[in-house]
Design a protein around this nucleic acid. Structure first.
Lengths: 142, 142
DNA sequence: TATTGTTATACTCTATAACTATA
DNA sequence: TATAGTTATAGAGTATAACAATA
């Protein structure tokens, strides 16, 4: 038997996908940390860039329990990044909106992430870039 | 001014990379959850498939503080997935090894992740796959 | 009654600082 | 003294269960 019987053979494409994913997450984690934020808070700010969603919508988007989102918004609110508003149509519903400070942080983070990833992609050919874009566009949501 | 002044223009390749990354992480999170594990524990088991590293090596690999790794290994050990051994060469050093149960879980997880991602990749052409593999191989570590 | 959100509780994950044991 | 690892502590993130307010 080979030296290592624990490693099941897996496709090189799958390996590439997983490795790529962790590289991107590492970049996101580091950039978020520069602003003393978690990747989840970073995602939250991303969502709020062009939406004013309900708590439930945020939970659905992030695939979190609504109680987890309550805590998430509590902490973001405490830091002045987001604000809660009660819906005028349905008093049960809470809408979440980024504050000007929240938008500013979101912009900075997006710019830094973009720069970092572009630097990593420096060696990628236009054809490989196009493949990557096509792949992302056609990949079904799991 | 446009409807939304908060969204800075970013490259489609960067967007693709980020989206792809979150898709993969979602798959990993779900598969890990099926075994009541976190993605970090999943990564740990992945590392231990072909290594018996020191605590410090695990910390370096996962980019965590050594104290965080102590807790991580505590919890994995409590669940019977890994075991600690003191190095015979240097009594300060602790080596971490997967147990048979740990290897079994690692194998199952790897198989499920592989299946899930292959399903997602069903529509990807051989050329696009090759591009993805090349990209992962040439991407510098950030 | 059903839905929206919060709270109480418990656990994992993580870091910082202080510590122990060994080299 | 320096290094490897642990412990104490604190906080973020997450889920489950129970709850209040509103529909």
């Amino acid at each position: 038997m080979a030296e290592n019987s624990h490693r099941a053979p897996t496709s090189p494409t799958v390996d590439a996908l997983v490795q790529l994913s962790f590289t991107v997450q590492l970049v996101l984690t580091r950039v978020a940390a520069q602003h003393d934020l978690s990747v989840t808070q970073l995602r939250l700010l991303g969502i709020l860039r062009d939406r004013t969603p309900t708590m439930a919508a945020i939970a659905a988007f992030l695939e979190l329990d609504r109680s987890s989102v309550s805590g998430l918004i509590d902490r973001a609110e405490r830091r002045g990044l987001v604000a809660r508003h009660t819906s005028e149509k349905d008093a049960r519903v809470t809408l979440v909106e980024a504050t000007p400070a929240g938008f500013a942080v979101a912009r900075q983070i997006a710019a830094t992430v973009s720069d970092s990833l572009e630097t990593l992609l420096a060696a990628a050919s236009p054809v490989d870039r196009a493949s990557l874009e096509k792949l992302a566009a056609t990949l079904p949501q799991p």
